[in-house]
Amino acid sequence: MSLGSLKARLIERLHSPESWRPDADAERSDFDLNPGLTPDGKPLKPAAVLVPVIAHADGATVLLTRRADTLTSHSGQIAFPGGRHEAGETAVQTALREANEEVGLDPAAVEVLGIMPAYRTGTGFLITPVIGWIAAAPELTAQDGEVADIFEVPWDFLMNVANHQRGHMDPPEGPRRWFWAMPFENRYIWGVTAGMIRALHDRLYEDVPDPEAAAAEDAA
């Protein structure tokens, strides 16, 4: 197997971009690990992120960012490029626009392979992950004041459940809250981003007899 098998697996198992609806039901959410928590019932805010898979000659990687420390919300956290929909946008259009704004990724360099089912956050967003295939290492520039760092993580690291941890926090009020976490080198991938990575793993490999071996071979 090879990068070609990874690309084929993604195309086969993802939804087509044309199937996207802004009010689609979420298949995964922050509440999956916290069944005792109750959504507040407010309307969800539609958003989209780009999951950029870069096809390097020595193996596939996934591009991620670290949000600037000066931001008022989610500062310093690891995230995919993305944000809220603007009026009239599809999920693909939002993801490509935000990636261009945040890291300077040329939309023409991205082959959109499909979309994942929506992910519901505990903060009231309904996020559609858009999976993009990038055939060559792109030239990127971090948006000043928004993005502190741009980095890549090997595909087989993210798709290995041995690297998927369950972390928790104890808020001042309310019960303990659990989340997925995937520490990588000196970076802590957690929360919504890790939850979407876990959802992508399950869609691609959950029914494969040896999922870790399959992911490693896909990334070769």
Rank of each mutant, 00 (worst) to 15 (best):
H85S: 11
P129D: 02
E111L: 06
L71H: 07
A135K: 09
E89Q: 13
I115M: 10
V110N: 06
L96T: 03
F157H: 12
F80R: 08
I131M: 11
E139D: 05
T123M: 13
A87N: 11
T128S: 10
V103R: 06
L113N: 12
T72F: 11
F151G: 06
S73H: 15
A142M: 04
N163G: 01
V153A: 03
F151D: 07
H74G: 03
L140W: 07
W155P: 07
I78N: 04
E89W: 07
T94A: 08
E102P: 04
A137D: 13
P107W: 05
M116Y: 12
T123L: 11
V110E: 04
F157Q: 08
I127N: 13
S75R: 15
E111M: 02
T121Y: 02
R97Q: 10
I150N: 02
H74I: 04
I78M: 08
R120M: 08
A108Q: 10
S75C: 09
T141H: 10
V92M: 05
G145Y: 03
W133H: 14
A118R: 13
D156Q: 14
N160S: 15
F125K: 11
N163A: 04
G82L: 10
L71G: 01
D144T: 13
G132N: 01
G88A: 11
L113T: 03
G83W: 03
S73G: 10
Q77S: 15
Q143A: 15
T94N: 00
I78P: 01
T121H: 06
P107V: 08
S75D: 14
E86V: 14
A118M: 10
F157W: 08
E101S: 06
A137K: 12
G145L: 05
V161N: 15
T141L: 09
V147I: 15
V147H: 08
F80N: 04
A162M: 12
V103H: 07
L71P: 02
V110S: 10
L113Q: 13
Q143T: 08
E102Q: 15
T128C: 12
I127G: 03
R120P: 00
D106V: 04
L71A: 04
F80D: 06
G124D: 01
H74V: 09
I150W: 01
F80E: 01
V147Q: 08
F157T: 06
M116G: 12
E146M: 14
P117T: 08
S73I: 07
F125H: 14
P117Y: 08
E101I: 13
M116A: 12
E146T: 12
E139G: 12
Q77I: 05
I127D: 06
V130R: 06
E86F: 11
T90V: 03
V92E: 11
L140F: 01
G124R: 10
A79F: 13
T90E: 02
